[in-house]
Amino acid sequence: MSETVTLGFTGDVMLGRLVNQRQEHRPPHAVWGSMRELLSELDGLFINLECCLSTRGRPWTLTHHPFHFRADPAWAIPALQDVGVTWTALANNHVLDFGEDALEDTFVALESGGIPYGGAGRTEADAWQPSHVRVAGLDIAFVAFTDNTPEFAAAADEPGTAYVEIDPNDEACLERVGDALARARAGDPDLLVVSSHWGPNMREYPPPSFQQFARWLVEHGADIVHGHSAHAFQGVELFDDSLILYDTGDFVDDYAVDSVLRNDRSFLFEVEVTETGVVQKLRMVPTEIAEFAVHEAFPAVATWCREKMVERSSPFDTVVDVEDEALVVRLPQ
């Protein structure tokens, strides 16, 4: 039997505002709470960083933008390094919250900390450039983009995000994303991951257009689709031997909690792949945010998470088993 590699995917990691304030009085690793050991044991860990890393800049006011998130890189980079964050998506609606100076600080902090990123860059070409990282001998390619906040889009000579208006029936969208996928495939990676910050907040199910688009991504080479943005986890789907995580919810933040959708609850999504990059299994560990840190969910909360994930995955006919406190989805071999 071949060796396997375990890759972790999370929803939004927002280290600013009250999280940042709390971290002034505790060690960097405290933000990972009781999940720290599980995170550290992964062979690779991939997140969406829902803030900039800077102490500079002014809040974005050029257009309506009510929330602004930034974290001090002096503690945030050691925290990311502590659990071995391997790559982070920056294609989202908060990376330019404090303007171009803070975005540049984010690039410099991640680069100095040895943490690759994608989905934002100093130019439009940089923002859309696929990333490649090595994890336990695997070459993993990443393509990252967002349909949030068009005013944050990078231009030919201006920094910003890899922005695209997602429409599976729009040729311009398909050409833009398809070109990035083709460039990622040209490197002949063992695994191709698409990280998409898409759609509106507080939705339990992806719209039909996103389902169509996610399947199109798989048909054009994606082995794993890593969705985030809704602040509520959505269902998972197996399609053509690939894995679609429609939305991975929130992992760490200080957000107000919706009493019905419970955006403080989600999962660590552990994907087991072979040493040649074949996706074999998904294991979902229930999590909950408390005291501005992420924790493994207590039994009653874990039960709620499992029940909701089974319910939200049922439209895709996904077979989900329970192992210990986690949910498991096995891909056909």
Rank of each mutant, 00 (worst) to 15 (best):
P332A: 13
E311H: 09
E311T: 12
T88W: 05
E41V: 12
L45D: 01
F107Q: 07
P28E: 05
F316R: 02
L7H: 05
F9M: 04
M14G: 05
S259Q: 10
R312H: 10
H226M: 05
E50H: 08
K308G: 13
P168D: 11
T61N: 14
V218D: 03
Q21A: 13
F98S: 00
W87L: 02
H25N: 14
V252H: 01
V329P: 02
P189N: 04
P207S: 12
P150N: 04
G113Q: 05
G33A: 06
A214W: 07
S314G: 08
H94S: 01
T10C: 12
A186S: 14
R215N: 11
W32C: 06
A155T: 14
L327P: 02
T274A: 09
G44I: 08
W198G: 12
A71N: 03
S195W: 04
G16D: 03
N148C: 14
A182L: 15
H231C: 11
G277N: 09
D101W: 00
R203Q: 15
E41R: 15
A154F: 03
M284Q: 09
A172I: 10
L243D: 09
P200I: 07
V252W: 01
F98W: 14
T61L: 15
A302I: 04
Y205G: 12
Q234D: 12
E272P: 09
A290P: 01
P168S: 12
A162P: 02
S242W: 09
V236R: 01
W304R: 04
T10V: 07
Q129L: 07
L174S: 09
W60N: 07
A230D: 06
A125P: 02
S40P: 07
L53K: 03
A156W: 01
F298D: 13
P315N: 05
D188S: 15
V225G: 12
M35F: 12
V260A: 12
S196I: 13
V273R: 01
L174K: 13
Y205N: 14
R58K: 15
F239Y: 15
G33F: 05
L238F: 01
P189M: 11
V194D: 01
S209M: 06
T61K: 15
P28V: 12
F292Q: 14
I77E: 04
A102M: 12
V218R: 02
F298Q: 15
E171Y: 06
G221H: 09
E111G: 09
D190H: 11
I289C: 08
Y163T: 06
G227H: 01
E171I: 09
V278F: 04
V257D: 00
G277D: 06
H295V: 10
H65P: 04
W216S: 12
A214P: 07
F152Q: 03
I140L: 07
H132W: 07
G137K: 03
F269D: 10
F46P: 01
